[in-house]
Amino acid sequence: MSHTFYVAVSYIAAFAVSFGLVAWVWLDHRARQRELAQLEAAGIRRRSDRSEAAQ
């Protein structure tokens, strides 16, 4: 196998790991936002938000 193969594979691995981390962070954020939105829809808010809304 040529050296280019190893170089390519290691760059692909680097890309895969970075992309995996980015995807993890991004999907996690999406899921959390969705949960927050669901809670919001159910009328559950943080106390600080509620006090602002009451003003």
Partner: peptide, 23 residues
């Protein structure tokens, strides 16, 4: 970048847990 975004996710996760418990 990843670290602060992951921290943001973690903060949101804890908030959600607290909200659920309150609810």
């Amino acid at each position: 970048t990843l670290h602060i975004l992951a921290m943001r996710n973690e903060i949101l996760r804890r908030r959600i847990a607290v909200l659920r418990r309150h609810a």
